[in-house]
Computed example of a mutant assay.
Amino acid sequence: MRFLMISALVLALAGCAGNVVTDYNSSAVFGNYASWAFAQNAGSGAFVSLDGSRVQSAIERELKRKAMRKVPADEADLLANWKIVEEDRLEQTGVGLGFGYGWSNFGWGISAPPPVREVTEGKLVVELVDTEINEVVWRAASRRYLTEHQSPETRSELIDEVVSEMFSKYPPGIE
């Protein structure tokens, strides 16, 4: 019984471990960064969308937890840039059907593939840019997606979870 409980816990933790991928500049000294601001083109739009305001709130919350001060962009050590990258994928919406007949080692069959539809999803990417060298020093990308069928509450929860998991890996090496 103990083995089953430990196995279930390990599987649950392993399932949670891969929702975010991070990368960073190994020559950056992350201890030198104390202030931040949003990049001027964060979100890459003329205005902040509903999901954009959710992302910005989550980033502000997480950087505040890291004891970083939000300052005007011209005074910041880091600029926070984010974007929701749209990706299209095919999704099966049912099961295939088939029938056949035969005898001995020979037979005939016919089948129809399952119905497929194209789904657009959004993947969140957050980057931190060193203002002194104007280069990305840390990047996180989500493996979980926003879809158009999610409710506002679900979208908000997902964004909060993803951003929290992203910044649990910042600064690099502290996990």
Rank of each mutant, 00 (worst) to 15 (best):
C16F: 04
V21T: 06
A37Q: 05
D160E: 03
A42C: 02
F99N: 01
S156R: 08
G15E: 03
V126L: 01
E86M: 13
S156K: 05
Q150D: 11
I174V: 15
N81S: 04
Y24A: 08
L97T: 10
T22N: 08
I84T: 00
E132G: 08
V20L: 08
V136E: 10
A67G: 04
G45L: 07
I84F: 00
R117E: 09
M5Y: 13
I59M: 05
Y33Q: 03
V136H: 06
K70C: 10
Q150C: 10
Y170G: 05
K66E: 11
I159V: 01
P152T: 05
R54S: 00
G94M: 03
V163I: 11
S104F: 12
F30C: 09
Y145E: 09
V95H: 14
A17I: 01
S7V: 14
S57H: 11
Q92N: 14
A76S: 11
A28T: 06
W36Y: 09
Q40L: 10
N19Q: 11
M68R: 08
S35V: 05
A39C: 00
G173F: 01
V85K: 09
V95N: 15
S164H: 09
L146E: 04
S168W: 03
A46S: 11
L63F: 13
I159G: 00
D74S: 08
Q56M: 14
N134D: 15
Y170I: 02
E135W: 02
G98T: 03
S53L: 15
